[in-house]
């Protein structure tokens, strides 16, 4: 039994590979599927993957700055809270966090829709990881900058907003851009909480056509093109901000 099964499997692989090139019908089917799935996939990418990534990133950045400031505040309970938050988020898988938010919280009466669930999960994740970047960036700003701001009568918040954060932002752009690009790819995890983003669309197309290689490769290609464009934008921003350094 065993040798013949193996033989059969090889035979199947051979058949499908050769059939693709020898059988124009199969090739046409691939082209059809690729064409008809492209727009839904792109729509999923732009409408959901990218939008959720952008929304989560901005909320996450606000959380990151607040967490970094808490860590730097010198106030013990604030420091402990910030550390606890970062530790929990970094120490547990994002996939598990999304499951807890979407499938777990309803059991204590907290029903959150798929998209808000995804945004909450991703924002908390960005907030924790980026808080360390922001903290390091704030610490990298020379003490004299604070003193110059204070010496003209600025308060802590004025010095932070006008003098320190703009400079810290410049320092953190390369690592934060990397986080953003990672986040765009991580949005594929939102498929498990039923967000109709690109990867879930791809799964639906596969279920209907049974062409996983073609459809998942197509999704991968779209992710790659988006990330490629994002890295070009990153370069532009870095060049622009470098002008005065």
């Amino acid at each position: 039994m065993v040798p013949s099964q193996k033989y059969q499997r090889n035979g199947l692989v051979q058949m499908s590979l050769s059939s693709l090139f020898e059988n124009p019908e199969r090739l046409n089917r691939w082209i059809d599927i690729a064409q008809s799935s492209f727009l839904p996939l792109l729509k999923g990418a732009l409408l959901y993957s990218l939008t959720i990534a952008i929304a989560s990133f901005f909320i996450g950045l606000i959380i990151a700055v607040l967490t970094a400031l808490a860590r730097l505040s010198g106030i013990k309970p604030l420091i402990a809270f910030a550390r606890f938050y970062v530790s929990i988020i970094r120490g547990t898988p994002l996939l598990v966090q999304l499951f807890i938010i979407f499938y777990g919280l309803p059991s204590i009466g907290l029903m959150i829709d798929p998209i808000p669930s995804a945004i909450i999960g991703f924002s908390l994740s960005v907030g924790a990881y980026s808080s360390e970047v922001v903290r390091a960036a704030i610490l990298s700003i020379h003490k004299g900058q604070w003193e110059a701001a204070y010496s003209m009568g600025m308060t802590y918040w004025q010095a932070l907003r006008r003098v320190v954060l703009p400079q810290a932002a410049r320092v953190s752009i390369p690592p934060l851009s990397n986080s953003f690009i990672s986040l765009v790819k991580d949005t594929s995890l939102a498929s498990v909480v039923l967000v109709p983003e690109m990867f879930r669309k791809a799964q639906e197309v596969v279920a209907a056509t049974y062409e996983p290689l073609l459809v998942y490769a197509e999704a991968a290609l779209i992710y790659w093109v988006i990330c490629f464009i994002l890295s070009i934008i990153q370069d532009r921003i870095e060049n622009k901000l470098d002008r005065y350094v």
Binding site: H142, G144, E147, A149, M152, Q167
Partner: peptide
């Protein structure tokens, strides 16, 4: 800050906002 507004300070390393 009230005291600081009475004074203007010039630093050894300038500390201009870059």
């Amino acid at each position: 800050p009230k005291l600081r507004k009475q004074t203007g300070m010039v630093f050894q390393n300038y500390n201009l906002f870059p």
